[in-house]
Amino acid sequence: MNKKMKIEAMWIIGVLVVLAAAAGLNVYTTGLPAFSIATKETSGTHINPSNHVIEVQGEQWAWVFTKENSTGIHTCTDSLTIHVNTTYTLVVSSTKGSHKLAVIHDLYIAQFDIQVYAVPGQNNTVTFTPIHTGTFIFECVEYCGYDHYIMRGYLTVVK
């Protein structure tokens, strides 16, 4: 075995080790409690009727959360308070607010591993169940104009 062959064999072994490690890490992290703080599924049409549906409208420059239940329609701007161990479905879209056109936003709840685009004329849904109480942050991560950076707030999970 000459020197080149030896080096090539080391390449192959090295690559296999790295790939195996990456695969193992991937499997491991998806099972971590930190990653299962919320479970979610992305689906275009199916919403379980027993879920609590919250309509999320991104506008320039605020997130408006709307929920309708037996007591009426509740609206919150740039903040959201939800119950623990309850399944919620966010229906995310974009409205034009006081502007001429609606633009693309992107709702990102970092600690919940939730990220979903708010696209005008399209309802993206994401379903999740918070299992911890506490206060978390959410942000808009798709540039949407002048005050893009204030499209953020706190998501509170209460008992």
Binding site: Q60, H99, K100, L101, A102, V103, I104, P120, E142, Y143, C144, G145, Y146
Partner: peptide
């Protein structure tokens, strides 16, 4: 990205 790129004012693009 367009709906924003079409806002020809300081609040948009």
């Amino acid at each position: 990205y367009p709906p924003l790129a079409l806002q020809l004012n300081p609040y948009g693009a």
